[in-house]
Amino acid sequence: MRLLLLAIALLLSAAPLRAADLRIDAVRSKAEFSVRLLWVTTVTGSFKAIRGDLATDTAAGTAVVTADIDTESIEMESARLRRWVLAPEFFDAENHPRIHFVSKPTPLPVLTRGGDVAGDLTIRGITQPVTFKLQGNRCRAEAMAGCVLQLQGMIDRTDFGMLGRRGALSDRVNLGLAIVIEAI
């Protein structure tokens, strides 16, 4: 019996852990978007409610980022624009209250030196593959708590069913995330 317990203890200590050991600091993180309006001005918005985690797999040398954004948390320069982007023709916040992103397993060195982070983005209940560019930072992959991960990308809004005002509003939408990582 003692040998069996010792064997189980050794197996458990050698098993690679894949756990959400870090999370997104919901207070200090934000997500932003911008889209051209009438090719003259840019409409921008900033989401204040973002949450998620960073799960690392040291055995595989990868990390997976999962993020959820509450669409109702958007702040914009005018109440009229805010009502419009939350309406059915854009985010349709009533029926789709969150935006969801989950990355593919990303090599740990990319978290510090920067590079491509591929994953799946869900907006309005439609999931599409996307690739964000992660900026390099001075953090070590094994000590990410306190680090800021800055990601930039572009989507085509029509891929997510946002078909309204195509003559006045660009189909290309810039997305940016500033994710502050904290220990759980």
Results as ranks from 00 to 15, higher is better:
residue 12 L to I: 14
residue 13 S to N: 01
residue 13 S to G: 12
residue 14 A to C: 12
residue 15 A to T: 14
residue 15 A to Y: 07
residue 17 L to P: 00
residue 20 A to F: 08
residue 20 A to Q: 15
residue 24 I to D: 01
residue 25 D to Y: 02
residue 25 D to L: 11
residue 25 D to A: 15
residue 26 A to D: 15
residue 26 A to W: 02
residue 27 V to F: 07
residue 28 R to G: 13
residue 29 S to F: 03
residue 30 K to V: 11
residue 30 K to D: 15
residue 31 A to M: 13
residue 32 E to V: 08
residue 37 L to F: 13
residue 40 V to H: 02
residue 41 T to N: 14
residue 41 T to L: 11
residue 41 T to R: 13
residue 43 V to G: 00
residue 43 V to I: 14
residue 44 T to M: 10
residue 45 G to S: 06
residue 49 A to P: 09
residue 49 A to K: 15
residue 50 I to F: 00
residue 52 G to W: 02
residue 53 D to W: 06
residue 54 L to D: 02
residue 54 L to R: 03
residue 55 A to V: 07
residue 56 T to A: 09
residue 57 D to A: 13
residue 58 T to A: 15
residue 60 A to S: 12
residue 60 A to P: 08
residue 60 A to L: 12
residue 61 G to Q: 08
residue 62 T to F: 07
residue 64 V to I: 11
residue 64 V to F: 03
residue 64 V to S: 02
residue 64 V to P: 07
residue 66 T to E: 11
residue 67 A to V: 06
residue 68 D to V: 09
residue 69 I to W: 10
residue 69 I to E: 09
residue 71 T to R: 10
residue 75 E to S: 02
residue 76 M to F: 06
residue 76 M to A: 11
residue 76 M to V: 00
residue 77 E to S: 09
residue 77 E to Y: 08
residue 78 S to I: 07
residue 78 S to F: 05
residue 78 S to N: 00
residue 79 A to F: 06
residue 80 R to C: 04
residue 80 R to T: 10
residue 81 L to W: 14
residue 83 R to H: 06
residue 85 V to A: 05
residue 85 V to K: 02
residue 87 A to F: 08
residue 87 A to P: 08
residue 88 P to I: 10
residue 89 E to L: 06
residue 90 F to E: 05
residue 91 F to M: 12
residue 92 D to Q: 05
residue 92 D to M: 00
residue 93 A to S: 15
residue 95 N to S: 09
residue 95 N to R: 13
residue 96 H to G: 04
residue 97 P to Y: 05
residue 97 P to H: 00
residue 98 R to N: 06
residue 98 R to P: 04
residue 99 I to R: 06
residue 99 I to E: 10
residue 100 H to A: 12
residue 102 V to H: 05
residue 104 K to M: 05
residue 105 P to F: 08
residue 105 P to S: 03
residue 106 T to I: 11
residue 108 L to S: 01
residue 109 P to L: 06
residue 110 V to Q: 01
residue 111 L to Q: 07
residue 113 R to I: 12
residue 113 R to K: 15
residue 114 G to W: 05
residue 114 G to K: 07
residue 115 G to E: 09
residue 115 G to Q: 14
residue 116 D to N: 11
residue 117 V to L: 00
residue 118 A to V: 06
residue 118 A to E: 14
residue 119 G to Q: 07
residue 119 G to L: 00
residue 120 D to L: 04
residue 120 D to V: 01
residue 121 L to V: 06
residue 121 L to Y: 02
residue 122 T to M: 09
residue 122 T to P: 10
residue 123 I to M: 04
residue 123 I to V: 14
residue 124 R to A: 07
residue 126 I to F: 01
residue 126 I to G: 03
residue 127 T to V: 09
residue 127 T to P: 07
residue 128 Q to W: 03
residue 129 P to F: 03
residue 131 T to E: 06
residue 131 T to K: 04
residue 133 K to D: 02
residue 133 K to P: 00
residue 133 K to S: 04
residue 134 L to T: 01
residue 134 L to V: 00
residue 134 L to Q: 04
